[in-house]
Design a protein around this nucleic acid. Structure first.
Length: 679
DNA sequence: TTACCTCGAGCTCA
DNA sequence: CTCGAGGTAA
C-alpha cells in the first residue's frame, strides 16, 4: 500500500510537470508560431503523459492536453457533412472478378498489358471508417462515415486514441482530411475482456463492434479505456496536392504522423494482386487486427481521376474479400413468417453458433423454392455462412449427417398465424396469406410500418406495444390507434401512467400529418416514400387518387403499369376505404390541395440529367432544388433531355450527351441557374 | 442480421 | 437493475 501510494505520488508529480511543459510548448507553437521543441520531442512527452494517465486514471487532470474534450457530449451526436463523400468500394469475391477489374482498367485507360501500370495494395481492416479533419495542422473534427454524405461528429472519443495526432507533424496544409479505420487490435480486445471477466464487467463480443461501440460512447473517459488503434488509408478534402500516387499519399500521411498499415505495398498486374491476396491471407490469422479482405487501388492519382466513378464507388479501386466464414450447426425448426404483404417466408431456427464474430441463430431461407432446392430439413446439420454482406445464410446441408427418418419440409397450405389459405399469384413465386388485417402477423407488420418514422412517426409506439395491443384485440386496424385512451394503455405491461401519457402525446402529434406520409404509411404495395410523394404531389388529395384510373396513374412521374395497378387494387378494397374513412373520422389531418399535374416554375418542361461528382452540392440536393423549380431530373440521357450537368469525372452519360447533341454545362452553370432563380 | 450505445421509465428490493 | 425503444454500423 505504501509502495503503491508513493508510486502514485511520483506519477502525480510527473504528470503535473508534463502538463505545464506541454501547454507551454503548445502555446508557443500555435499562438507565437515559434516552436520550442521538435515535433518528435513534443509527441514523446505527450505519449508519456498518456501512458501515465492510462496507468493511473485517478490522476487525470481536467487541464491535461489529453482531456481537451474531457466532458461527455450531450444528447445526440451532431451531424457532419463530408465535403468529399466517403464512398464505398465495389467487392471482388473471386479470381475472375480481380482479373476483370484489371482488364477493364487497362481497356479504359487504353493501355496494353505491358504498359507500366501499378496498383497500391493494402489490407482491408475490419473496423469503423472515420474521417479526421485538420485545419492549419490541428485536429478540429472527427466524423463517422454515415451514409457517405453525412456522418456523426465523434471528435470527443476519437481524440482519446493516442496514435491519432492532435497536431500534424511537419508542414501542414491549410486543410487536410484523413480517412482511415478505427480498429480494436486483437491483443487489446483480449486483454480488455480478461480484465472485464475479473471485474465482472460486460464482455465485448467482437473487435469490430467493440471499436464501433467505443467510438459512439458519449463519455470520452470510457472510450479512452478501450484499446483502440487507427490506420490511415486515404484523403478527403486537401488544400494542396500532396502526391502523384496513392503510395506517395500513404507516405505523406506517415510523415504527418499517422499509422499506416505495414502490409501496404504495390503490384503491377492481376497475377500480382492475386499473389498479394494469397500472401496476406496466409498471415491473416497472425495479424494484430481483424481484416476482411485486401484493397487494390490504381496507384497513379491522375489515372484514378481519368476513370472516375460508377454510382457510389470508384472504378479505380476494389475490395477483394476473403471467403465468408462458415460454421456447422443444426436446424432446430423451420418457421414460416408472415410479412406485411402477407408473404410467407421460411426461416431456419438454428442452434446458436458463433461465426464471423457474431452468434447466428436465425437464417432466412428466402422462399419455398429456395428451401426445396437446398433441401433443408428440420434436424439437418447445415453449413452456415456469414459473408461480409452481413446477412447469414444456409450454404448447404451436410447430407452425410442426415438422419434416416428425416422428412422433407412441405410448404404450408394455410397461414400458420391465422389459418387463412395461402395463395400463390400467377406472376410471382411467393405464397401469400389471404387473411389481411384479420391475420395478426399482417396486422402487426402493417402497424409497425404505419407508426414508423418515415410514415406517421409515432414515437414510443414500439414492437412490444403493438404486440400486446393486437393480442388483446385492442387494435384491429391502424385507425384504431387514434381511438386509444390513457386507461387502456396504462393497463398494459411495462406501461404505467407516464409512458401512457407519452405515447398518447406522440399519437396526438401525429394527427397533423401530410398526404405523402399517410400514403406511405398505408402500406400500398410498391408504394415507398418516393412514390408516395409523387402521388401526393400529382393528385393533391386522397379522393383524386381513389378516383384515378390506370391511364391517369401512369401519368405520374415514375409510376408505371405495375405500381398503378397496385394503387388501383388498394383503393378497390372496401376494407382499405373503411380504414381511411375511420382515420378521417378519428381526426387525422392531412392537408389536401389542388393537383400539381402541370408542374409550374421557371424550369417547367426542362429535363435535366446530373452526371459526375458535384463539389458544392450533393446529388440529392441538386435534384431537389431543380425539381423545386419545376424541372424533371432524369437518370439517363435521351433525345428529350434538355440539359446535362457534368460534374467531375463524368462518364458515359457525358459521352451520350455529346453523341445526341444535348447541351452540356458544368456545376458553376448549375449554381448560376439556381442563384438566378433565388435558390 | 447482430452488436453496441443511450435514454427514459418501470420494477424490485432494501 | 432491467427492459423497451430508437439509432448506427458492418
Amino acid at each position: 500500500m505504501a509502495v503503491e501510494q508513493s508510486a502514485l505520488d511520483g506519477g502525480k508529480a510527473r504528470i503535473g510537470e508534463l502538463i505545464s511543459q506541454l501547454s507551454m510548448f503548445s502555446l508557443a507553437y500555435h499562438q507565437d508560431d515559434a516552436p520550442l521543441v521538435s515535433d518528435a520531442e513534443y509527441d514523446q512527452l505527450y505519449l508519456e503523459l498518456v501512458r501515465l494517465e492510462t496507468q493511473n486514471p485517478v490522476l487525470i487532470r481536467a487541464d491535461s492536453p489529453t482531456q481537451r474534450v474531457g466532458e461527455p457530449v450531450s444528447a445526440d451526436f451532431t451531424q457532419v457533412r463530408h465535403r468529399i463523400p466517403m464512398l464505398s468500394l465495389n467487392n471482388a469475391f473471386s479470381r475472375e472478378d480481380v482479373v476483370d477489374f484489371d482488364r477493364k482498367i487497362r481497356e479504359q485507360l487504353k493501355l496494353s498489358a505491358k504498359d507500366g501500370l501499378q496498383y497500391s495494395v493494402e489490407p482491408k481492416l475490419d473496423g469503423l471508417a472515420i474521417s479526421l479533419r485538420y485545419e492549419r495542422g490541428v485536429l478540429v473534427q472527427a466524423a463517422t462515415r454515415g451514409d457517405g454524405e453525412t456522418g456523426e461528429d465523434v471528435s470527443h472519443t476519437i481524440r482519446t486514441i493516442a496514435v491519432i495526432p492532435l497536431r500534424l507533424h511537419g508542414d501542414a496544409p491549410e486543410v487536410l482530411e484523413v480517412r482511415g479505420e478505427v480498429v480494436m487490435p486483437r491483443a487489446g480486445f483480449a486483454a480488455y475482456n480478461t480484465a472485464m471477466q475479473k471485474s465482472g464487467g460486460k464482455l465485448l463480443v467482437n473487435p469490430r463492434n467493440a471499436a464501433a461501440g467505443s467510438v459512439r460512447q458519449l463519455d470520452p473517459k470510457l472510450a479512452a479505456q478501450r484499446p483502440l488503434a487507427f490506420y490511415a488509408y486515404g484523403l478527403g478534402e486537401c488544400s494542396v496536392e500532396l502526391a502523384d500516387s496513392h503510395t506517395e499519399c500513404l507516405q505523406a500521411l506517415k510523415n504527418f504522423g499517422f499509422p499506416v498499415a505495414a502490409l501496404a505495398t504495390v503490384a503491377t498486374d492481376a497475377a500480382g494482386l492475386l499473389a498479394y491476396f494469397e500472401q496476406v491471407g496466409e498471415q491473416r490469422g497472425s495479424l494484430a487486427f481483424d481484416i476482411d479482405g485486401v484493397v487494390y487501388k490504381l496507384n497513379k492519382l491522375a489515372w484514378q481521376r481519368a476513370l472516375g466513378f460508377v454510382s457510389r464507388a470508384p472504378r479505380w479501386a476494389i475490395a477483394h474479400k476473403y471467403p465468408a466464414q462458415e460454421a456447422i450447426t443444426q436446424v432446430l425448426a423451420i418457421d414460416v413468417q408472415i410479412g406485411r404483404t402477407g408473404a410467407a417466408t421460411p426461416v431456419a431456427r438454428l442452434s446458436p453458433v458463433f461465426v464471423g464474430g457474431v452468434t447466428v441463430s436465425n437464417a432466412t431461407l428466402h422462399n419455398f423454392e429456395e428451401l426445396a432446392r437446398k433441401d433443408v430439413r428440420i434436424g439437418d446439420w447445415v453449413v452456415v455462412r456469414r459473408a461480409g454482406d452481413v446477412i447469414p445464410e444456409v450454404a448447404r446441408v451436410e447430407l452425410e449427417r442426415r438422419g434416416e427418418n428425416s422428412v422433407e419440409f412441405t410448404p404450408p397450405m394455410i397461414c400458420p398465424v391465422c389459418q387463412s389459405a395461402l395463395a400463390k399469384n400467377a406472376d410471382e413465386a411467393v405464397l401469400r396469406c389471404t387473411g389481411g388485417f384479420g391475420c395478426s402477423a399482417q396486422l402487426k407488420a402493417a402497424l409497425r410500418h404505419f407508426v414508423s418514422r418515415r410514415a406517421l412517426d409515432i414515437e414510443g409506439f414500439g414492437d412490444e406495444l403493438i404486440e400486446q395491443l393486437v393480442d388483446l384485440d385492442l387494435l384491429t386496424d391502424p385507425s384504431q390507434i387514434y381511438a386509444l385512451d390513457e386507461k387502456t394503455l396504462a393497463s398494459l405491461d411495462r406501461m404505467a401512467l407516464k409512458s401512457a401519457k407519452n405515447v398518447l402525446q406522440a399519437i396526438e402529434k401525429s394527427r397533423q400529418t401530410t398526404l405523402e406520409r399517410l400514403l406511405y404509411g398505408l402500406g400500398i404495395r410498391d408504394v415507398g416514400e418516393a412514390t408516395a410523394k409523387a402521388l401526393a404531389r400529382y393528385f393533391g388529395s386522397i379522393s383524386a387518387i381513389e378516383n384515378a384510373d390506370l391511364a391517369q396513374l401512369i401519368l405520374v412521374p415514375d409510376v408505371g403499369p405495375v405500381v398503378a395497378s397496385r394503387v388501383l387494387a388498394f383503393f378497390k378494397q372496401p376494407r382499405n376505404l373503411a380504414v381511411l374513412e375511420k382515420l378521417r373520422a378519428l381526426g387525422l389531418q392531412f392537408p389536401e390541395g389542388a393537383p400539381q399535374a402541370s408542374s409550374a416554375g421557371p424550369l417547367a418542361g426542362q429535363i435535366i440529367v446530373l452526371t459526375g461528382t458535384l463539389a458544392q452540392l450533393t446529388r440529392d440536393a441538386a435534384q431537389a432544388k431543380l425539381e423545386a423549380l419545376g424541372a424533371k431530373v432524369s437518370g439517363s440521357v435521351s433525345k428529350k433531355t434538355t440539359l446535362v450537368i457534368a460534374g467531375d469525372a463524368a462518364g458515359s452519360k457525358l459521352d451520350k450527351a455529346r453523341e445526341l447533341g444535348v447541351a452540356v454545362a458544368d456545376e458553376a452553370h448549375l449554381l448560376a441557374i439556381l442563384a438566378s432563380n433565388g435558390v
